[in-house]
Nucleic acid binder design. Structure first.
Lengths: 201, 201, 201, 201
DNA sequence: AATGAATGAGGCTTCATTCAT
DNA sequence: AATGAATGAAGCCTCATTCAT
């Protein structure tokens, strides 16, 4: 088999297994059994168990990064709302296509390793910074109300992660209507859950 | 040493280590070295590595459950807002006192075991259900605007988890002013981030 | 409690447990739990696990030795047959009273230790020598036919051991009629299983 | 090395050690040291310590079963006596070839485990049933005198086991003349030890 | 005379990685 | 390009024994 093909094949099985059972509960033995290759072959393509997991995680994070883009506000750009929705849709699409990737991101990578944790944190911090600057721009444009944009960004990140986790847990709803879900979430984040003009008693 | 004391001592060291390095990266050898007891002593007090971790996690979840209470709306109850803030404050307090517990909750317990994962999910689902029913009550009272309360609950849970995670990562801010943090988060969740009357263009 | 009493009590529980579950599968923890004494107390009365087992085994072998007596042929002695039957009856009686002792003898002591094995072998060899000399006397008296008395003694020992083992396995028959059993066995050993005057074709 | 070869090699060393020192007194460390393989290699071929012992015991019992055959009395069959002697010879041959197997059977397997004990008991019960039915056939043919065939079978089994044990203990005699030994034993069992026409006084 | 907390050597098993073919 | 037998460090757990109270 072509090296590139073989590599991809092993990666695929590893991704599925890591996603299903987590890093520690997935053994090299299982990966090669699933991929139908010999032990030695695995080490021909990957340096170590940690190595293949790192590659998977790097690919995933890079892929995500690519799909999340700063909202452009220059004249001639599409509406901010449609850009936001597109961002969300692109991320949802990735996880719809490769569900185990979501599993790896949310369950597999945490707690494996100090280094992995740091990498994840850095990634999330990146996203948060992106959101924060977007919120700041929004404030300057008079769209976003005065608030601690850093905290708001953390909140947004949490919302996003939890919705993804919910998707992972309850499959049915996911396929149901991702667009509506995205809209609802966006709505809650932008307008809150209270009636207009009402405050918590 | 008194059994109860010794037990607590070992639990304490285990909590710290599990919190710092995760379940898999913490060995019994490290726990007993930290606690300054012999190997056999550990097994005098705990059935297994999994056993002590389970106990830690159970204690933590029970503790959390206790601190999170349904908001009472009967006449004579304190204001809803103060009850909400108290809930948040009690949880923050727990983690301020025992930071590794937060670490265990957020990083240590995930991916250890199918059973632990299920336990965590169940716990979070519990919290989400509590929030959902609170939101529904709010709707009936005309305080909460019409929206999918289940999704809103998931959002609230995500907000909460992420704020905790942020706390774990950036210590300084935590101690700084937890009340202000709680208020800000509550504000975003209830009113959203947009200016009144404005919608995303 | 009186030292002597306590000692006997612990010995009793140990005997039962060793008999039921064998030497290796019986722990000090179980013995003291059954006897209701503390760990330290055990070591006040016995040197070690091996020690208490050895004592048990020694007692048993001594007891057995006592119950097996050379058949006396001097004028005035009881009939040889009744002496033989008495020997058997005394042994059966011991095991009827303390069944676990039989269990220890047949299952518990073998394979524990080279030294225990040697002790058992020596004991059995003793019995065999006793039988051999009895058979030789029988030959001189013209009662026992010419044969290799050593082999015959080994055979007799085997018969005896197996009948005891059978007793241990199938309780009902044991209580049924030990005298009849003894007679039947003695008969087979003395006359064989073939018809008179017939040989295996 | 070829897997089959390696497996056999490890099995061989394990058999010797289990036979010499018993199950509990033989450690994996000793087995792999004797076989000259690494710790992991052992577990490549056997599931566990219990696993390899079970395999050894199963092989042994199967082997023995194969060597012990019902005596055929159909016209044209070899003489009953020669068939009996052949049975005995085949068993003796097995143990002459692989002495530790005999050791495992007689000393190693007892008291290891409830399950092993049960397996052994079942095996012996099988042999006893075979003998019993043979004796009953003999009675119908008028060769075997009236007696309790079940007890006679137990006796026969005991004779057999003890002779084997004697062989194990006193090597010299074993090689000396197995045929003569077999004949003598068979003789005692069939004709008894008494002079014709004489009974125990 | 008794207690029971503490010990630590010893044993079994797993699994990522290597390397000769 | 592929194989799979072999490795051994590392981890978890048991349990007979000791000793301070």
């Amino acid at each position: 088999m072509e090296p590139r093909e073989r590599r991809a094949q092993i990666l695929g099985h590893a991704a599925r297994l890591f996603g299903d059972k987590g890093y520690y509960d997935t053994s090299i033995a299982e990966i090669i059994a699933a991929a139908g290759v010999a032990r030695g072959t695995f080490y021909l393509y990957f340096e170590s168990k940690r190595g293949i997991f790192e590659e998977l995680l790097n690919n995933l994070l890079a892929d995500l990064h690519e799909r999340i883009r700063t909202v452009e506000t220059e004249p001639g750009s599409p509406s901010a709302r449609s850009q936001l929705v597109d961002n969300i849709a692109r991320v949802l699409q990735l996880f719809a296509d490769e569900r185990h990737m979501l599993s790896i991101l949310l369950k597999g990578a945490a707690g494996v390793d100090r280094e992995f944790d740091a990498k994840l944190n850095e990634f999330y911090a990146d996203i948060a910074r992106l959101m924060e600057s977007s919120l700041t721009v929004g404030q300057e444009m008079g769209i976003v109300r005065p608030c601690d944009t850093r905290i708001a960004a953390v909140v947004a990140l949490g919302v996003f992660k939890e919705v993804l986790r919910d998707l992972l847990e309850n499959d049915e709803r996911a396929a149901a209507d991702p667009a509506k879900l995205a809209a609802e979430v966006l709505d809650i984040f932008s307008r809150g859950v209270l009636m207009d003009g009402v405050s918590i008693p």
